[in-house]
Design a protein around this nucleic acid. Structure first.
Lengths: 285, 285
DNA sequence: ATGATGGGTATATAAACTATACGCATCTTC
DNA sequence: GAAGATGCGTATAGTTTATATACCCATCAT
């Protein structure tokens, strides 16, 4: 079967599963095929996945059967929700909108400067080819009130939950650091790399964070949290790169577990706090 | 031009732009077409986007020209980064991997219980058709240590930055509330709706949060933050649904701006705090 | 030099798709 | 309850797209 046909069958199944029904017109709109071809596709789908399709004459629409069994995809809630979040952002790009009758939805607006496509492109190139590169970077340090050209040897990208960082060797400070991608205004001058990616210890080393329900919660609440985090014996372990450990602390609000009035706010606490603090000290040194 | 051809040209351009080069083999792998067809596609691309393509005989690979001008897509860094994050998760689903030589990357691991596809599917159905539905829900309240069947009339989905909520009218408490999607274990019994989506005031009302750089920062740092958040006159306004306001506070760590030792941690503060607190009180009442 | 690899192209053939047309069932409108 | 609109199904002939196979060329490693 040709790739285009396969995609259309997948599309039919996607719509049936997540949106409950599909039309010839849906296929025509999505893929620009002719109406007879859309008919053939539906017939073909019925052949390949017998019993999944039921035509509702009254609604003039194919509906998913009660015992619908997907054969062209594995339904995954996270994937659907990720798509949903994308439709919110507006810019679709590669992923076209397979969601037609999406539910009303909204995500928290995270205000931020946009990342320049050309900057990202050049950084990716430097990572790929093992170059160093100069970035016109706005540092937060008080000594540098305006952006400066800095040479860095990038080797990876990291996401802290709110924004993306470049993980790179800094040719000025002679160590590996994070550079916030959106603070790179422009790039220039590829050059020789200043360090091997393998030497970025904090990036490659991972610390195993042990999480436990906040002991300030009631027992029944603790057990609910344990289920939420899929804990076994009231514990769950999360491997976190040391370079990301600081952001992990902040994102999960682990730094305030004890100081907060309401334990409800911080469902989990770090169970191996001493080791955690040591690792964090190492990472932020 | 047929949909499949268009997609292949788009793919060629995507790879050229973000990964710098492309091969016949890449096209064959991605779309399962024959080798001569991949050749034709490259020729066709050169026709449609003259000058973008340069064959590097030594590397045996087409490379993007220095003055590469995309014609089949608008390059968007956010879209690329969203794809990158998806590849991390593993589950691809609808979006196939257009990223071949992706850079090394990692995102913060957010430990969480998975959402059941069948649950989400049934909730979507209820929203779409305006039904109520029973969910086997694990509430956090101390009075309900184990999951219970609750009838709700869902009308929207909301994301708080860490997880998805169902926004629904609760038939037990007779008001609109958030239900954490991953705490819905199963669903059953569609029924009549208990309320109109329009009556969910906190969902439809939005509060305009005014954000300003943390005054505890130095002047130059404040101006950097102002740029980060694309502020004008040291302010930016963000429209937030009242139903999401509480999560906005938590996510941006706005509740600790003054208590924190290090203002660096909280780049922005709420400039219209009194109105904000009033709106928040209304939302959490 | 030799072979492996990757690209270009030509041919005949097969598959996929279009345009057009017509028939059928359901629902809405008058 | 007839008329019209809509949506599905299917048949035909013709076009586009893609395949399989073949052969040639350039570059590079050995």
């Amino acid at each position: 079967m040709r790739w285009g046909v396969e995609k259309r069958l997948e599309f039919i199944e996607f719509r049936l599963f997540w949106e409950g029904g599909i039309n010839r017109a849906d296929i025509v709109d999505q893929f620009g095929v002719s109406v007879p071809q859309a008919s053939k596709d539906l017939t073909l789908y019925e052949e390949k996945a017998p019993g999944n399709l039921i035509y509702d004459k009254s609604a003039k629409r194919y509906k998913a059967a009660d015992d619908f069994k997907p054969v062209f995809m594995q339904p995954n809630a996270s994937t659907y929700l990720a798509h949903l979040r994308e439709t919110n952002g507006g810019a679709s790009g590669v992923t076209e909108a397979w969601l037609a009758s999406a539910p009303e939805h909204d995500a928290l607006p995270i205000p931020h400067r946009r990342v320049e496509a050309d900057v990202l492109r050049d950084v990716l190139k430097a990572i790929r080819e093992g170059h160093s590169i100069e970035v016109f970077y706005q540092s937060m340090s008080a000594k540098k009130p305006s952006p400066e050209w800095r040479r860095i040897s990038p080797h990876a990208l990291g996401n802290d939950g709110l924004r993306w960082h470049i993980r790179a060797f800094c040719h000025i400070d002679h160590k590996f650091k994070d550079f916030i991608l959106s603070r790179c205004m422009k790039t220039r001058k590829h050059g020789l790399s200043g360090a091997s990616a393998n030497d970025d210890k904090l990036w490659h080393d991972r610390f195993v964070v042990a999480l436990a329900p906040n002991p300030a919660l009631s027992e029944s609440q603790r057990s609910i949290i344990a289920q939420d985090y899929e804990m076994t014996n009231g514990r769950t372990e999360v491997m976190v790169r040391k370079a990301l450990l600081y952001y992990f602390l902040k994102r999960l609000r682990l730094d305030f577990a004890d100081k907060l009035d309401n334990p409800h706010e911080v469902p989990v606490v770090v169970a191996n706090r001493a080791a955690f603090d040591a690792a964090l000290a190492e990472a932020t040194a």
